[in-house]
Design a protein around this nucleic acid. Sequence first.
DNA 1: CACCCAAGTGTTAGTTACTAACATGATGGT
DNA 2: ACCATCATGTTAGTAACTAACACTTGGGTG
Lengths: 210, 210
Amino acid sequence: MSERQPNLRERRRSETRRLVQAHAVRLFTDHGYDAVTVADVAEAAGVSAMTVYRHFPTKEDLVLIDQPAQLIAERVAASSAAQPLVRRVGSALIDAATNWTGGNGDEQAANERFLLDCLRLMVSTPALRARHLDSQYALQQAIVDALGYDATGPDAAFRAQAATSACIAAMHTALTRWVEDDGHTKLPDLIARALTASFGDDAVATRRKD
Amino acid sequence: MSERQPNLRERRRSETRRLVQAHAVRLFTDHGYDAVTVADVAEAAGVSAMTVYRHFPTKEDLVLIDQPAQLIAERVAASSAAQPLVRRVGSALIDAATNWTGGNGDEQAANERFLLDCLRLMVSTPALRARHLDSQYALQQAIVDALGYDATGPDAAFRAQAATSACIAAMHTALTRWVEDDGHTKLPDLIARALTASFGDDAVATRRKD
DNA sequence: CACCCAAGTGTTAGTTACTAACATGATGGT
DNA sequence: ACCATCATGTTAGTAACTAACACTTGGGTG
C-alpha cells in the first residue's frame, strides 16, 4: 500500500476505463450483447468509439475478466512435485479462488457483484463463452509450464497437459455453477467438489493423508 | 448404402459446398486464416461471396468440423450406470474415436488428411480455437443429458457436469497431440493415455476388472 | 410435352466491428 | 514559461456479415 502515487493522467485513464466497462456490462445485461453496438457503449459512457477501442482491443474484451493466471502458476510451481498432478493443480486452483473471491470489504462486495455480472454474460453469450474458454486454454499453458514437466520428456509433458486441462475443465464447471447460484455457494468449495467428482477423494483432501 | 438417390440439385449443392470448403482450407493453410477474405475463397471456388455464406453461416464454419456428438451421446446412454462417471464417458469417447478415424479405404485416407488440415487450423488460429472449444462445450451438454443424472438431483447433475467436462478436456489434449503428430499415433490410444494421466488406470482399463 | 413452383445463385446496398492516420488539447517534467 | 507526451477525437477505409430483389434452372404435375 505504499506505491500510492498515481499520476492524474493515470487516474483519469483508469477511471474512464472503469466507466466504459461498467456502462458496457450494464447495457449488455439489459439489452443483450448482440443488440448493443460499441457506439452505443461509447455514447453511454460519454466518450468516442475510438476511445473504447483504445482501452479494450475488441468488444468481447469489455466483458472478459483476466483470471489471475500469474498467481495460479506461481502456486503450482511452488507445490511439491511428489504429489499427483491433479492434486498439485487442483490445490493451486482452490487456493487462488480463495484469495480471489475472499475478503469482506464494501469494495470487495461490489467487485464480486460486477464479476458475477461479467461471468453471467460469458456463460450465456456464445461469442463471449468461446473467448473465455480460449483464455482458459492460455491458463492451461501457463500451468503446464509451471509444472516443469517439459524437460522430462514428451510423454510426461503430454500427461501434464492432459491432467491440467481436466482440472481446468472441472474448475470451469464450478465457475458456471457459482454463477447459476449467484455467488451464494463459496467458490473454493464448488471447485473442490468438482475436482472430487472428477478425480476421486484423494485428489483434493489435503488435510489428512499428508 | 441403399438410399443412394440424391437429386441432381442436391448433388450439385453438396458438391459446391465441398468445393468451397476445400478451397477455403487450402487458402487458409497456405496464407493464414486472417490473411484470406471470404471474397478470396469465393473467387477461388468460382462462386459469389453470397453463396459461401449460404453454405457456411460464418467464415469460421468453413473450417469447423462437426464432431459426431450424436454418436457419442448414444454410446454414453447405452453404457452401464454402475460404472464410475469418467469410465462411462471415457469409454464412449475412445469408442467414437475408433469408429471416426478407423477405416482404410482410399476415400477414408483423404478424409483423414482433410480432417487433419482442419484441426491444424483450429489449433493454431485463436478465433477457430475458441469456436472449437465452444463446440466441445455443446458436446458436453449432450453427454450430460445422455448420462441421465439430471433427475437424480442437482448435486448428481453437478458431478456429472464436472466429470464430463474433465473427460472432454482430456480428449481435447489428445486431439491436439494427434494433430502435432500428423495423425501417426492412433487417436484412440492417445485419448486412453490422456484419460489415464488424468483419472488413473482404473478409469480406462476396460479389459480386466469387468 | 408444356407449365410452374421452388431452390440455388448473383447483385446491390447497408450495418457493424475494427484499423490507420492525423489533429488537438491537456498533463507533467524541466 | 516551455515543450514533449499522452489521452482523446475525427475521418476514412477494410472486411464480415445481412436483407431484399432478380434470374436461372431442375423437377414434379397436368
